[in-house]
Simulated scan of single mutants.
Amino acid sequence: MTRILVVDDVADNSFLLQALLEFEGYQVDTADNGQAALAKIESAPPDLVLLDVMMPEMDGYEVACRIRQNHQLDSVPILFVTGYDAVATEVKAPVQVAGIIRKPVEIDNLMVQVQTALDLE
């Protein structure tokens, strides 16, 4: 079964994404901050990470950089989930990500982006 890690500091956002993805048959785990996400990714790498950009302490950019710096994890696809506009997100992103999902999340777009990222794996 395909495993997805949803990382968001807002519990309602994580719950929504988890419910939508589990309904589609994915196994979903969540983390509410960057440190917890990195610990989960290192102990059991998921098939895909949905990563909120704006989080306290360690934002999504930092988490993504740390994932990419670990050669055992650098092939795990990452989708940023953000309310930022496209230009700001793409210019600031210091790492290669599989795509960007805008908030509020549009369900059909979410599923297309998830499947595309998993197909690239």
Score class of each variant (00 low, 15 high):
64 A>M: 05
81 V>D: 01
12 D>V: 11
116 T>C: 08
80 F>C: 01
68 R>P: 04
18 Q>C: 12
12 D>M: 13
35 Q>T: 03
76 V>E: 07
103 K>Q: 11
6 V>F: 10
104 P>N: 13
91 V>L: 15
89 T>Y: 02
81 V>H: 01
68 R>V: 09
39 A>S: 10
34 G>N: 03
52 D>R: 01
98 A>N: 05
42 E>R: 13
116 T>L: 08
38 L>A: 03
71 H>A: 04
117 A>C: 09
88 A>V: 04
16 L>C: 04
84 Y>W: 15
110 L>Q: 08
10 V>A: 13
66 R>N: 12
5 L>G: 02
13 N>M: 05
107 I>C: 05
101 I>K: 02
117 A>I: 11
13 N>R: 06
118 L>N: 03
45 P>K: 06
43 S>H: 14
24 E>H: 10
30 T>Q: 08
21 L>P: 00
102 R>W: 08
58 M>I: 09
57 E>R: 00
32 D>P: 03
120 L>R: 14
107 I>A: 15
20 L>H: 04
14 S>I: 05
36 A>N: 14
96 Q>P: 15
56 P>S: 09
88 A>G: 00
110 L>D: 05
115 Q>R: 15
24 E>N: 06
26 Y>F: 15
35 Q>I: 01
92 K>A: 15
8 D>K: 03
46 P>V: 12
114 V>I: 11
93 A>V: 10
95 V>E: 12
93 A>K: 00
4 I>E: 03
91 V>T: 15
118 L>E: 09
78 I>S: 01
104 P>E: 13
108 D>A: 11
44 A>E: 11
62 E>N: 10
87 V>S: 09
107 I>V: 14
47 D>A: 11
19 A>M: 07
9 D>Q: 11
18 Q>V: 11
95 V>T: 12
57 E>N: 02
38 L>T: 07
79 L>N: 00
